[in-house]
Nucleic acid binder design. Structure first.
Lengths: 100, 100
DNA sequence: CAATACCATAAGCTATAGCTTATATAAGTC
DNA sequence: GACTTATATAAGCTATAGCTTATGGTATTG
């Protein structure tokens, strides 16, 4: 129901890069900030958006916070995309079918 | 390779609404403009973005232009999403697996 | 060919997304 | 308990995305 948030979250290139990192293993904010070309606060802000879209989750460990990609948000987005795909394909096939 | 454009295109709510209309059957710009809550130029601008992401195609018919959703852009986006999904799922499973 | 209908483009406005620096909070370290 | 490390939040700046009105170009119609 909230694939909109996921789309918004993944539309930004910087945020997408962060997410693509988190898809394989958890990272701390510091790690991400060092790898990214933006400041630590910027990373935190991006993580907040990703979190709001339920694309990532946090696991606190002392003073660190391990962020990781989570299936929740992605599932909704995929469901929506699949539905779109079916509709587009059938409509497109209908449109290009040679009605001989 | 250009799923980024598709994500950007679909992130905007107005544009997404237009696209969701075009997923089933072709519409002229005028039809879309009447249905949408924005002006005709706004619709044209959105269609341009969707077209740039190869999410829609045009078929001119006299003075009208029939826009329709096309599989091209959506295919790339789906491919990317599927790859993400696999990675996220396996990493997530690894992370939540009870290592007893 | 004058008038009309359809669409795209131009130009300008405004809200805001994404960035920065500065600072607050909390946890580990000596 | 001072000091450092890790992160979030606040505040402010700037570029731009999305909207508008105005207009240009191109078919269609009488």
């Amino acid at each position: 129901m909230s694939y909109g948030n996921a789309l918004t979250a993944l539309a930004d290139p910087t945020r997408r890069r962060l997410y693509e990192r988190l898809r394989r293993r958890p990272h701390t904010v510091g790690e991400l900030a060092r790898l990214a070309r933006v400041s630590q606060p910027a990373v935190s802000q991006h993580l907040k958006v990703l979190s709001g879209a339920r694309l990532v989750s946090v696991r606190p460990d002392g003073v660190r916070r391990y962020y990781q990609a989570t299936p929740e948000g992605l599932r909704d987005l995929r469901a929506w995309l699949d539905a779109m795909w079916d509709d587009v394909l059938s409509a497109y096939a209908r449109g290009t079918t040679d009605p001989t």
